[in-house]
Simulated scan of single mutants.
Amino acid sequence: MDHKELEILHLLEGNARLDIETIAKMTEMTIDEVEQIIQKLEDENIILNYSTVIDWSQVRRYEGVTAMIDVKVTPQRGVGFDEVAERIHRFPEVKALYLMSGAYDLSVTIEAGRMTEIARFVSEKLSALDSVISTTTHFQLKTYKHDGVVFGEKREGDKRIVVSP
């Protein structure tokens, strides 16, 4: 991976809505070069998705609940944690899944409409898997920062300076 590809990745990670022309100016590349690099990164599954960070606490009538679940599992011979992780990530409630170091093996993030739905997920789906030894569930109370975005700050326009030759 070269310097220009990394630069484009960092720009898109910070703001996926940047248009090709702006990226070209910021990286001192042509529009065609930027388009080719982005297409290459998408084809190679380096860029997997473009997402938006939403402050759901600001959305009226939205009462969603997010839980982080620590899971201790018995790794399977020959495949380690991958097989159980694949079974867990298939559940539609699962928004994120990570292999962790420390007391627990997996960290699962799920979203639901109510706490009872999370309880049902843990008791009926997650804990029912043969490899799962134990779980600890943590409920998200407030978001201060997510994906580099600080919540609750008054946002002003983009303060970056576009540098062009």
Rank of each mutant, 00 (worst) to 15 (best):
V79L: 08
D147R: 15
S123V: 12
V132K: 03
E124D: 12
E28A: 13
R17T: 10
A67I: 08
D130G: 03
W56I: 11
V59S: 05
I118L: 04
V34C: 04
R90M: 11
D82Q: 11
V150P: 00
K142F: 08
D158F: 06
S164P: 00
E33C: 08
H3M: 12
S164A: 13
T27G: 04
Q76F: 05
M68I: 13
T137R: 02
E42P: 01
I31R: 15
Q39E: 14
V122A: 11
H3N: 12
L9K: 04
R90F: 09
T22R: 12
E42D: 06
E5Q: 11
V34M: 06
T116G: 03
G102K: 04
I69D: 01
H138L: 13
D105R: 03
K159C: 02
I38T: 05
K40M: 07
H146G: 02
I118E: 02
R155K: 14
A85R: 01
E124C: 08
K72L: 14
D43E: 15
A16W: 08
S57E: 15
E33N: 14
T143G: 04
E44W: 11
L18N: 09
A119I: 10
E7N: 08
G14N: 13
I47L: 06
D147K: 15
G148Y: 04
L12K: 02
E21T: 09
K40G: 01
V53E: 06
G152T: 07
T143H: 05
Q76R: 15
E86A: 10
E86T: 12
G157D: 13
A119Q: 15
E111Y: 07
L18F: 08
E63Q: 11
G14P: 03
F151A: 06
K145P: 00
A24E: 09
V108H: 01
Q36H: 12
H89W: 12
Q76W: 04
G102I: 09
L97N: 08
E86M: 13
D55A: 00
E44F: 10
M100I: 10
R114H: 15
S134K: 15
Q36G: 12
V65F: 07
D70E: 14
V53Q: 00
E21A: 11
K40T: 09
I23H: 01
L126I: 07
Q76I: 13
V149D: 03
K4F: 09
P165G: 10
Y98R: 10
I47Y: 01
M115C: 01
V162E: 14
R17W: 07
R77M: 15
L9H: 02
M26A: 04
L48H: 05
S131R: 08
G113D: 13
G113R: 14
E7P: 00
H3S: 07
V53P: 01
I161R: 10
M115T: 13
E35M: 09
H146C: 06
I37L: 08
D105S: 02
L106P: 00
F91S: 02
Q140R: 15
F121W: 06
S134R: 15
I20R: 07
H146V: 14
I37D: 01
S127L: 15
E44T: 03
F139Q: 07
K154P: 00
I20Q: 06
D32L: 12
V132W: 00
V65C: 07
H146K: 15
Y62W: 09
D82P: 00
I161Q: 11
T143S: 09
E83C: 00
N49M: 13
E13V: 09
E33F: 06
Q36T: 07
E93Q: 14
R61P: 00
S57Y: 14
R120Y: 10
A16Q: 07
M100G: 02
T30Y: 11
